[in-house]
Design a protein around this nucleic acid. Structure first.
Length: 276
DNA sequence: GACCAGGTATTGC
DNA sequence: GCAATACATGGT
């Protein structure tokens, strides 16, 4: 009898797994026919299901200890979003963006995976980003079981040459991925140093990598390095800001930059009426 | 076949 | 400094 690890989190009232896992901040969760999500984090195969009536989050694939030590923070379930939302709602635009997906959350993902994923994201679309990352894991990650693979470590990627990385058909991004892996392995880019830096220093630290500019740096810092004051601006955000904040971004948005960005990004990407 | 996609590096002024 | 352009690949 194979034991199936599971943890059930009770009294969860503000976690929208759909908005969170389909928001373009992560790329390895897939929705199943039963509305649950399956994805790989580290070497764990997770299955998440939210029970609306009981307000329970059921996570298959991990135990209580792993939840407390890692995944509670990974899914950002420690943070007081109520307080942040209340402050942001002073602004009318934010109020609408929050109403659209009030319970979306920032994922605190692993540093290297986030960096590598957002290098792949540049000048690319989300379905293709997902497919390239899947190919990357299949080719260079470690098989866990069935068709599930870990995200390959920086060490594993750093050993590859250009011809090998081109198997994943990431185009011109291949050389960027190799440069990032090498610089993470030799600690030119070091997460432990980034943890101690302010946002601006951390950005420039990351931008030592060829193929990492302000946008990839900010996404990496927000979703993979707990820099919640990062405010990634991509094509969607540019359009949204031009339309929603023609006279500039209010202070309250700057104060909660990271989370505000996720609300606005999600709102502008999914709510077409804004631009009509 | 042109144009776009969670951008960046390079070039030219 | 800032605008224009190339960059791989796949989908409309």
């Amino acid at each position: 009898m194979l034991k199936n690890k599971v943890v059930i989190i009770k009294n969860i009232y503000d976690f929208d797994i759909n908005a969170t896992l389909l928001s373009g901040q992560c790329f390895r969760f897939k929705k199943n026919d039963d509305k649950s999500f399956t994805g790989v984090v580290k070497d764990n195969i997770l299955n998440l299901k939210y029970d609306d009536s009981k307000h329970e989050l059921i996570i298959n694939g991990i135990d209580e200890k792993q939840y407390v030590e890692f995944y509670e923070e990974y899914f950002d379930l420690k943070k007081d979003y109520n307080k942040i939302r209340k402050e942001l709602e002073e602004d009318e635009v934010m109020k609408k963006a929050i109403q659209f997906s009030p319970n979306i959350k920032i994922l605190n993902q692993e540093f290297w995976e986030t960096l590598c994923s957002f290098i792949i994201s540049q000048n690319n679309n989300i379905p293709r980003i997902i497919s390239i990352i899947e190919t990357l894991c299949k080719n260079f990650g470690t098989n866990i079981k069935d068709d599930f693979y870990t995200f390959p470590s920086a060490e594993e990627i750093a050993q590859l040459n250009l011809e090998q990385i081109n198997i994943i058909k990431s185009g011109f991004r291949g050389k960027y991925i190799l440069d990032a892996a090498k610089k993470v392995v030799n600690k030119t880019v070091d997460y432990e140093k980034i943890e101690k830096m302010d946002l601006n220093d951390a950005r420039h630290h990351l931008m030592q990598i060829n193929g990492v500019g302000p946008k990839v740096a900010d996404c990496t810092l927000l979703y993979g390095a707990k820099k919640f004051d990062a405010f990634p601006v991509d094509v969607w955000m540019k359009r949204a800001i031009a339309k929603l904040y023609p006279n500039g971004i209010p202070d309250v948005v700057t104060k909660h930059a990271g989370i505000a960005q996720l609300y606005i990004f999600n709102y502008s990407r999914l709510c077409k009426e804004i631009f009509e």
